[in-house]
Deep mutational scan, measured.
Amino acid sequence: LQAFIKTLTGKTFTVEMEPSDTIENLKAKIQDKEGIPPDQQRLIFAGKQLEDGRTLSDYNIQKESTLHLVL
């Protein structure tokens, strides 16, 4: 599935991932794409901060969901 990552500066980019991917995997993909170390990334979806060990499906993240990236 493709999801949108929106930063506080208003920049939006897309990442490809599977519902079974962990938040940790997602942070690694963001690092590959944007060069931001995972330990500096905080991802917010539906008002909740996402925990590394959980999966996208745990948070009911669907295709074309928008996640907010806070540094």
Rank of each mutant, 00 (worst) to 15 (best):
K11C: 08
V70G: 05
S65K: 08
K6G: 03
R42E: 09
M17P: 01
N60V: 07
S20I: 05
F4M: 11
A46W: 08
T9I: 07
S57P: 03
E64P: 04
D52W: 03
L67D: 01
E51H: 07
L8Y: 12
M17G: 03
F13E: 01
G35K: 06
L71Y: 10
Q31E: 09
H68I: 15
E51C: 08
T66S: 06
Q2M: 13
K6W: 06
K27N: 00
S20K: 07
E24D: 07
F45M: 10
L50Q: 01
L56A: 04
E64F: 13
A3G: 05
D52V: 05
K63M: 12
A46R: 14
E24Q: 13
I61K: 04
A46N: 15
D32H: 11
F45I: 06
L8Q: 14
I36V: 08
Y59A: 03
G47E: 05
K48A: 10
L50R: 00
Q41M: 13
K33A: 11
A46C: 09
T14L: 11
D21Q: 07
I36H: 10
Q62K: 13
Q2C: 10
K33V: 13
Q31H: 14
D39I: 08
V70E: 11
T14H: 08
I36T: 07
L1D: 04
E51S: 06
F13K: 00
T7E: 03
L69E: 01
G35V: 02
E51P: 02
E51Y: 05
E64C: 09
T22I: 04
K29S: 04
M17Y: 15
K6Q: 11
S65H: 10
L26C: 01
T55D: 03
Q2T: 15
D32V: 13
T7V: 07
I23A: 02
I23F: 02
D58A: 04
D39F: 10
P37K: 06
D39K: 10
T22L: 09
P38Y: 12
K27Q: 02
F13V: 04
Y59I: 07
N25F: 12
P19S: 11
Y59S: 03
K33H: 12
Q40P: 01
E24N: 08
M17C: 12
P19F: 12
Y59D: 01
Y59C: 03
N60L: 11
D52P: 07
V70N: 05
L26Y: 00
V15C: 03
L69W: 00
E34T: 15
I5D: 02
L43P: 02
F45S: 04
K11H: 14
I61L: 08
G10S: 03
K27W: 02
T9Y: 14
A46V: 06
T14C: 07
L56V: 13
E34D: 04
D39W: 13
I5W: 02
I5Q: 02
F45A: 03
S20M: 11
I44T: 10
E51Q: 10
D58K: 02
G53F: 11
T9V: 07
D32A: 14
K6S: 10
F4I: 15
H68M: 13
I30D: 00
I44N: 05
L8S: 15
D39R: 10
Q41A: 04
Q49L: 15
R42D: 05
D52K: 04
S20L: 09
T12A: 07
E18K: 13
P38F: 13
S57K: 11
